[in-house]
Simulated assay, not measured.
Amino acid sequence: MLQGFSERLYTSPFSTYLRTEFWIIPVSQTIHILCVAIVIASAAAISARMVGVMGRDQPLADFAKARAVWVFAALIGLVLTGSVQTLAEPEREFGNPIYLTKMALVLVATGLSGVFLILLKRQTPLSTGGRIFGFLLVFLWALITICGRWIAYL
């Protein structure tokens, strides 16, 4: 089913345009990588704050909220640039189990990030489990980054 859809999408005028304009894919990939860096750096900073390594002068909720704006702006950038890359080469993406794994991990990490922010907004104190949760988020975003790099090689 995905293969037929991918083939039709690949031969569409829009997909062809994205592939043949020499600047679109490199610019999209560059912006995508910068957005990934923002997400990873923000998640790492929040985790570092959770364990008291940085930003101790600011409440965790305020610290996380300030970085969440960057994360969600970067996520919008990732969706837009990822869509360009997927539309340009749908067969490469939809036929790749690493791509599908990456997309599933993105959904999980985004959902867990939302839960984390809701807990902070409610002023729920973070126990050791909360700190582990923070490290899990960093791990998930790092794993998503690794999957993103491996898509090109499988």
Rank of each mutant, 00 (worst) to 15 (best):
T101E: 02
G111F: 05
C147T: 09
S12I: 01
V69E: 04
I151P: 00
A142E: 07
Y153K: 14
F116Q: 00
A142L: 15
L126E: 01
V71A: 01
I33G: 01
L119R: 11
M103I: 10
A152K: 11
T20Y: 13
G82E: 01
C35G: 03
L140S: 03
Y17W: 15
Q58E: 15
T101K: 05
G4T: 09
L126Q: 12
S28C: 09
S28W: 05
W23Y: 13
P125M: 08
T124F: 10
F139E: 04
T30C: 08
F22L: 09
V53W: 13
I31C: 01
P13V: 10
R122L: 09
L60N: 04
T128I: 11
T16S: 15
G95N: 11
P59Y: 10
L87H: 12
T110L: 14
G114R: 04
L9R: 07
R92V: 12
G134E: 00
T86C: 01
I38N: 02
I33W: 05
C147P: 06
L107E: 02
I25C: 07
F5E: 12
C147D: 02
M50V: 00
L87S: 10
W70I: 07
I76M: 09
I46F: 01
V53S: 12
I118P: 04
S15E: 09
V106M: 06
T81Y: 04
L2W: 15
E89P: 00
A104G: 14
F63H: 03
L117Y: 05
L78K: 03
F5D: 15
T110F: 13
R92W: 08
S83T: 15
Q123F: 10
A43L: 08
M103L: 15
A61M: 08
S127N: 14
V138Q: 05
V69F: 11
D62E: 11
S113G: 13
S113D: 06
A104R: 09
F135Y: 11
W23R: 07
A142V: 15
S6C: 06
Y153C: 00
I98K: 03
P59V: 08
L143F: 15
G129R: 06
R67P: 04
